[in-house]
Design a protein around this nucleic acid. Sequence first.
DNA 1: GCGATCGTCAACCGATCGGTTGAATATGCG
DNA 2: CGCATATTCAACCGATCGGTTGACGATCGC
Lengths: 113, 113
Amino acid sequence: MAPHLDTVFAALADPTRREILRMLLEDDMAVTDVAEPFAMSLAAISKHLGILAGAGLITQEKRGRVKWCKLEPDALKAASVWMQGFGQFEPVNLDAFEAFLERELGAEPFDTP
Amino acid sequence: MAPHLDTVFAALADPTRREILRMLLEDDMAVTDVAEPFAMSLAAISKHLGILAGAGLITQEKRGRVKWCKLEPDALKAASVWMQGFGQFEPVNLDAFEAFLERELGAEPFDTP
DNA sequence: GCGATCGTCAACCGATCGGTTGAATATGCG
DNA sequence: CGCATATTCAACCGATCGGTTGACGATCGC
């Protein structure tokens, strides 16, 4: 039951893969460009991307000789919902909720520098 | 940066450990009782509990000769916030937010049976 | 067509993972 | 005290992980 969660959480457990996701948050990228800032081989990054794609967190589309990587944030939904099942035990956690609101609605607090 | 996320996500990547967390959602449990429904050795469960404790997802307190395991849902906070950073790509997910509010503030909807 | 670029494949490596078993360590009970 | 219960420790196992290297297949520009 819920084999997706296995692969999604496992994919998120690696800092390199989380950083790749963060990069893809800004824009779609080619494999070579994804690999550029990392101090490891292109093949290693290619494997990481394969794992992210296997978890559904990204999709890859080959256009010409370059393969474009696109973030698929909806794949985080099931994991997020699963985690929310533990929210009932938290005292209130309104601060996290406010941060969430700020990000979602773009409502910046007054004291922002 | 953010070594917690490594261990938290890795801990969540195993279905046995997720099931343990689900069980602890209902009540604190002794190690032996946690192990009972699983078809594996007590030592294996003890290791799983150690990993969960290492990630801060549970705490263990020895009272007498039995060690009680207690869920620590706040440890999910950092991971949850990290994932919310990708929420800007989702439509809005207001339904999850309303469910969150209902649970947090005890504001039950009218049509509750 | 040719050379350079993009990306994967395959084989290999050491480390870690998830599990086992058996012995060891506390602690409680009668 | 002596035995049962609760839990961990230590060693081991095969499988998987994260990484490397080198060869390979496509595809582009000239």
